[in-house]
Amino acid sequence: EADPRLIESLSQMLSMGFSDEGGWLTRLLQTKNYDIGAALDTIQY
């Protein structure tokens, strides 16, 4: 079963217009401990 923190973070990022095609966003959020800010910083640079 998916981590509730992942579901919450992923749904927030999907609502911002990101896609999780191929699961890349799920993996990114997992490596950033479900921190949306850290994930966005990684995507920006």
Rank of each mutant, 00 (worst) to 15 (best):
E1S: 13
E1N: 13
E1A: 14
A2W: 12
A2F: 12
A2V: 13
A2Q: 14
A2G: 12
A2Y: 12
A2D: 14
A2I: 13
D3T: 07
D3L: 06
D3S: 08
D3E: 08
P4C: 08
P4A: 12
P4L: 10
P4N: 11
P4Q: 10
P4E: 11
P4F: 11
R5C: 08
R5L: 09
R5W: 05
R5F: 06
R5I: 06
R5K: 10
L6N: 03
L6A: 08
L6R: 04
L6G: 03
L6Y: 08
L6H: 06
L6P: 03
I7Q: 14
I7L: 14
I7F: 11
I7G: 09
I7H: 10
I7D: 09
I7K: 13
E8Q: 12
E8F: 10
E8R: 10
E8T: 11
E8L: 11
E8H: 12
E8A: 13
E8S: 13
E8C: 09
S9R: 05
S9E: 02
S9K: 06
S9I: 07
S9Q: 04
S9N: 04
S9M: 07
S9H: 04
L10R: 07
L10Y: 03
L10G: 01
L10I: 08
L10P: 00
S11N: 14
S11R: 14
S11P: 03
S11L: 13
S11D: 10
S11H: 12
S11K: 13
Q12H: 11
Q12F: 13
Q12Y: 11
Q12S: 10
Q12T: 13
M13T: 01
M13H: 01
M13S: 01
M13Y: 01
M13V: 03
L14S: 08
L14F: 11
L14K: 12
L14Y: 08
L14T: 09
S15H: 11
S15F: 06
S15G: 14
S15V: 11
S15T: 10
S15K: 13
S15Q: 12
M16I: 06
M16V: 04
M16H: 06
M16W: 09
G17M: 04
G17E: 02
G17A: 03
G17Y: 02
G17I: 03
G17L: 04
F18L: 07
F18R: 00
F18G: 01
F18T: 00
F18W: 09
F18Y: 13
F18H: 05
S19I: 11
S19N: 15
S19D: 14
S19E: 11
S19L: 11
S19V: 11
D20R: 00
D20E: 03
D20I: 02
D20P: 02
D20L: 01
D20W: 01
D20Q: 03
E21C: 14
E21V: 12
E21H: 11
E21D: 12
E21G: 06
G22P: 01
G22H: 08
G22Y: 09
G22V: 03
G22C: 14
G22R: 06
G22K: 05
G22N: 12
G22A: 07
G22W: 06
G23K: 06
G23P: 01
G23F: 07
W24F: 07
W24M: 05
W24I: 05
W24Y: 08
W24S: 04
W24A: 05
W24G: 03
W24K: 05
W24C: 09
W24P: 00
L25F: 01
L25M: 05
L25V: 06
L25E: 00
T26G: 07
T26F: 01
T26P: 02
T26Y: 03
T26M: 04
T26E: 04
T26W: 03
T26S: 12
R27F: 06
R27S: 09
R27L: 10
R27A: 11
R27H: 10
R27E: 10
R27D: 08
R27N: 09
L28V: 07
L28D: 01
L28G: 00
L29V: 03
L29K: 00
L29Q: 01
L29T: 00
L29S: 01
L29P: 01
L29H: 01
L29D: 01
Q30N: 08
Q30V: 15
Q30M: 14
Q30W: 06
Q30Y: 08
Q30L: 11
T31Q: 15
T31P: 00
T31A: 15
T31K: 13
K32D: 03
K32R: 07
K32A: 10
K32I: 10
K32Q: 09
K32P: 02
K32L: 15
K32G: 05
N33A: 09
N33S: 08
N33D: 10
N33F: 09
N33K: 09
N33M: 10
Y34W: 06
Y34I: 02
Y34N: 08
Y34L: 05
Y34G: 05
Y34T: 02
Y34H: 04
D35I: 05
D35A: 04
D35S: 08
D35T: 03
D35F: 04
D35Y: 03
I36K: 03
I36V: 15
I36G: 01
I36F: 05
I36E: 02
I36R: 02
I36N: 02
G37W: 13
G37D: 14
G37R: 11
G37E: 14
G37N: 15
G37T: 14
G37S: 12
A38L: 11
A38Y: 05
A38E: 10
A38Q: 09
A39R: 00
A39F: 04
A39P: 02
A39C: 09
A39M: 04
A39N: 01
A39V: 14
A39T: 13
A39W: 03
A39D: 00
L40N: 02
L40H: 03
L40I: 10
L40A: 03
L40W: 07
L40V: 06
L40M: 09
L40Y: 07
L40D: 02
D41E: 14
D41L: 15
D41N: 12
T42N: 08
T42C: 15
T42R: 05
T42I: 11
T42E: 15
T42K: 08
I43E: 02
I43D: 03
I43T: 02
I43S: 02
I43Q: 02
I43M: 07
I43R: 01
Q44N: 12
Q44R: 15
Q44H: 15
Q44F: 15
Q44E: 13
Q44D: 14
Y45W: 08
Y45M: 15
Y45I: 15
Y45D: 15
